[in-house]
């Protein structure tokens, strides 16, 4: 399952592997349900240089995809259900940063 996210032009978010321990990583998590997330595949980070940092930073920008591989949970019952995911990110421009934010994702699934 692939999520496509878009940052407005002029903004970037830290990648899932930020360059500095103080920076907040991009992170997608899923609540337990009839399927469980086995692997989350993040976009390949870009190393970009900004005026506020002496070193390039590991970031994502523009539109990017995050893919989750799911597996059936043991004993999952058949029928419709809704998975809930949370995408946490922290964005900056080249001059300012914004508080970390979490976007909730609702995904309908049908176990047959």
């Amino acid at each position: 399952m692939k999520i496509t996210a878009t940052l407005n032009e002029g903004f970037h978010a830290n990648s899932h592997t930020p360059s500095d321990e103080n920076l907040i990583p991009l992170k997608l998590t899923w609540e337990p349900g009839p399927v469980v997330a086995k692997d989350v595949i993040y976009p390949k980070p870009k190393m970009e240089k900004y005026a506020f940092s002496p070193d390039p930073l590991s970031v994502v920008s523009g539109s990017f995809d995050i893919t989750t591989k799911f597996a059936l949970a043991p004993g999952a019952a058949s029928g419709m259900s809704v998975l809930t995911g949370k995408l946490r990110y922290q964005a900056c421009s080249d001059r300012a940063c914004f508080p970390p934010k979490t976007v909730e994702i609702k995904l309908p699934v049908n176990i047959q």
């Binding site: 399952m1 496509t4 878009t6 058949s78 300012a96 995904l107 047959q112």
Partner: peptide, 27 residues
């Protein structure tokens, strides 16, 4: 077959707009 996730799940499940659209970041 039972216990198989429906293929009706869209491949692209969500699109999130993450930026701060109208924010001028140096005022």
């Amino acid at each position: 077959m039972l216990n198989r996730v429906s293929k009706a799940i869209p491949v692209v499940a969500a699109a999130a707009l993450l930026g701060w659209a109208a924010c001028n970041t140096h005022r």
